[in-house]
Design a protein around this nucleic acid. Structure first.
Lengths: 216, 216
DNA sequence: CTATGACGGATAGTATCAGTATCCATAAAC
DNA sequence: GTTTATGGATACTGATACTATCCGTCATAG
């Protein structure tokens, strides 16, 4: 398969594929002569993954690169791969809330508290930690404390999600085949990132439905 | 309060505030003379809202404008305001999956089915509808059908979120005061958009915790 | 009462991101 | 053997979200 067919199969324009090759998101094709390369099934698959992460997951190209490098590394522990996926969808924050404000400290305390109550094991550098803290601080400063009060209800649901996703990834495939570590790593990335999109869009639909029915 | 103090209070640089004024995100201050304006509490509040939507909610400036215009309109039905919030956080899709592919049709059918089964009332143009369909199609084409198989579990949780958010918005404030329609509209926007960030970051934390504990 | 700084308003410039476009020499297909 | 496609390199583009600069005015501290 040459680049034109790869483009036709995936719907990605040729210049874009070339761009992904340049950026190292997509491994180079096998060269049969100095200017003739051939691509195959893994390339199609990888390209679909890239597009899903970029279009649906809103993952920046640089982070996609980080993720696929992890997938290709073969020696990266699964936990690290998950870290990359988490890092990819967590915007680097430049501390909009000036960190030593009292509202931020309060949010921080509440997060620590929640984690302890839940018995969660969280690394102190986890990117989601800052996001959560800042979100809570923002909700408070906007006067939405009541939402924050239901944190535990959210946490319950979210734990269920996480466990569900693990079982989806570790249980054998529909055809009964065991999963290779490669496939698991890829599934984890997809599940983490597209799972978020899935939940978000379902949530919006549920909201719209209630709203259309007039809230009661 | 002049622009310098507004900047100090909110931590937003003066040129950025000017930019928001230009874009109509922030209403102009009250002019005491042709080149002297004063800002007050509502401006602080609005600015905080803008920053929360932009920084935490990743809402594009143009969509923030759309949202605050709705908040200021006074006559916009709540349902429409919700629509604006939903539209703001739903990326315009340019149909990456070429729409008439069989995988897309299958996903479409599954979504229709889900909505019927749930008894949801959804407008056909709902932006989340396309996102959901494309996400399901992408998950399938990436071989993650098992995740898709748990759609109903997700839907259960998500319904709970939506109801919880409604009660948070419609129940009286902590101080017992009733809520004005204005305040409800703003709460809905905040809840919809920051709620998503909240859920997403909690989910990542739950995942990380399970991962750190070795999945078992 | 003037010097110094902030302010409002307008216009122009910048950085980043995610592609697109263009070239060219070579290879393939008809 | 001529048209088309390809690989690879380099340059350009459009959108987004700010920043920077100017300028004339205003406030206010000395």
């Amino acid at each position: 398969m040459r680049i034109g067919e790869l483009s036709r199969v995936t719907g990605v324009p040729v210049p874009t594929i070339k761009y992904y090759l340049r950026e190292g998101l997509l491994p180079p094709g096998e060269l049969s002569s100095p200017n003739q390369a051939s691509y195959d099934e893994p390339h199609v698959r990888r390209l679909r993954l890239i597009r899903a992460l970029v279009d649906l997951g809103q993952v920046p190209i640089a982070q996609v690169k980080n993720i696929v490098e992890g997938l290709d590394s073969k020696t990266l522990p699964l936990h690290e791969q998950i870290g990359r996926a988490h890092y990819a969808i967590t915007r680097p924050r430049q501390l909009s809330t000036s960190s030593e404000e009292p509202s931020y400290a309060a949010a921080e305390a509440q997060v620590t508290d929640l984690i302890a109550r839940r018995g969660w094991t969280i690394h102190a550098e986890a990117p989601a930690l800052t996001t959560l803290t800042e979100t809570i601080a923002a909700l408070r400063s906007l006067g939405q404390d009541n939402l924050v009060g239901h944190l535990d209800a959210y946490a319950d649901a979210v734990e269920a999600f996480a466990e569900l996703e693990i079982s989806a990834v570790t249980s054998p495939a529909p055809d009964g085949a065991a999963r290779t570590p490669d496939a698991v790593a890829e599934s984890v990335v997809i599940g983490t990132i597209l799972g978020e999109t899935l939940i978000a869009s379902l949530r919006l639909l549920a909201q719209e439905s209630l709203s259309a029915q007039g809230w009661r």
